[in-house]
Design a protein around this nucleic acid. Structure first.
Length: 169
DNA sequence: CCCGACACGGTGC
DNA sequence: GCACCGTGTCGGG
């Protein structure tokens, strides 16, 4: 499978973006280590033949959305690579409207596995499309910020930008 | 409020 | 089999 990729800047730091025939399949912060970001991409999306391509149609569209400030929904085609359970969780995340938040427990119920709360947390953390799949809109039932693969600070900034007040939940 | 203990389900080794 | 975990709940400081 051919996978196109490119690096680009966002308001929250540099990201590595990748897409395949179905759509965008990866977006992750490089954290100043492009080699590691690429290794991560290769681990998650395989088998894959990586080809750098900054003019890939979907990559340029994400770039445009990112440059515009990541305001509102993005409507970009996503290619979900994962176990059936993970894909179910990620699809549930895509149903969360811009500017609203839900709990890990609510996601567990939404996919019909009310007791798999912890596994849901793990699946959310393994989501390949940070920001594009709104994993930052999931908080703990007690209103706590919860975790974030790319650092709590980024999660807070994303929520703040969407106008979510988490201080008194 | 902040622990500690435990149940919980999916995943990787 | 076993040890992880972006959780939740309960009980005790």
């Amino acid at each position: 499978m051919i996978v196109h990729y490119a690096f680009t800047e966002t308001p929250l730091g540099e990201v590595l973006i990748a897409s395949d025939e179905q759509g965008l399949c990866f977006m992750g912060f490089t954290e100043e280590n492009r080699a590691e970001a690429l290794a991560d991409l290769e681990r998650r999306i395989k088998p894959a033949s990586l080809v750098e391509d900054k003019s890939d149609q979907w990559i340029t569209q994400v770039h445009a959305w990112l440059s515009a400030g990541m305001i509102g929904e993005h409507h970009l085609p996503l290619s979900l690579h994962g176990t059936p359970f993970q894909v179910a969780v990620w699809k549930a995340l895509l149903e969360i409207p811009y500017g609203t938040v839900v709990s890990y427990q609510a996601i567990a119920r939404a996919i019909g596995r009310p007791k798999a709360v912890r596994a849901v947390g793990t699946a959310i953390g393994r989501n390949n499309l940070s920001i594009l799949i709104p994993c930052h809109r999931v908080l703990t039932t007690s209103g706590g910020i919860g975790g974030y693969r790319w650092g709590i600070a980024r999660k807070q900034r994303l929520l703040e930008q969407e106008g979510v007040g988490w201080k008194e939940l």
